[in-house]
Design a protein around this nucleic acid. Sequence first.
DNA 1: CCCCAGTCCTGCGGGC
DNA 2: TGCCCGCAGGACTGGG
Length: 284
Amino acid sequence: MPELPEVETMRRGILDAVGSRVVDAAKIRCSRKPIEITPAQASFRRRVRGAMVAELARAGKRVVIWLDTDDAIVIEPRMTGLVLVVDPPTSEHLRWRLQLADGPIDEILYWDRRGLGNVRLFSREEYDSRFGLEKIGPDALEITADEFRERLGGSRREIKPALLDQRAVAGIGNLYASEILHVARIHPQRKCSAMTRQQWQSLVAATHSVLAEAIRYEGSTLGDGTYRNALNQAGGYQNMHRVYNRAEQLCPRCSAKIKRLVQTQRSTFFCAKCQTIARGPAGG
DNA sequence: CCCCAGTCCTGCGGGC
DNA sequence: TGCCCGCAGGACTGGG
């Protein structure tokens, strides 16, 4: 479930600890079925050893460690991956570690219970071809209303599944899609092509405010407790959720009952009273 | 081209 | 009590 706010929290969590540091080694450490780590250990280690960490970035839901060799270590946590600078929740799901030569922390750890995530090393050229604007859309924190409309306005899809399309906009996942649409007062089944300019404006404003607020709270840690920040601490935004996982509870804005529906095999939560299909944003 | 169902994986909780 | 099944949803693949 790590989405933009959780991945951004991971990035910030290792930022101070890492700084400009020399990489000592990259090691696979896995007692279970190995996750995807490319290239293989020997080659990976040869390419990163002795390199300096130049920049810590984020590409949608991926943490990117740029080295001064122009290689990028890209960590993709998918469902249950964590980037840590302290002891992980369990030792058996520790998948990979990046050892650093000096400074306050020894290593950056990658832990992943389900093992759907991956750690890959790319040259700048490979990185650009995979994560350039052609492949993943503008970052959700930066996208404008015009960009939203240009990329999705011609689509016959419903807006909620469209928000999950990383080629249209990067960083939104299933949880924040429901939260964003509730704040924007847009029904999740509204067709993209039927959205008004005012609704694209509401959508971009809600996208920015929800994600920025979630980053301030260091992301959402759900009931399974899986998501943690780099210090293995829970986030706080789950206490601020308006609709996600709150079916049958009351809408915090209008007190109607929150509903759940399934779109493209994913749960969606919304308030049918203040998120309308046929009309523009209520009260707007 | 556009879009969706199926796939990977583990742990948890419901039903019997 | 134990087992089985469904569900959670990241990104990718195959195919209609």
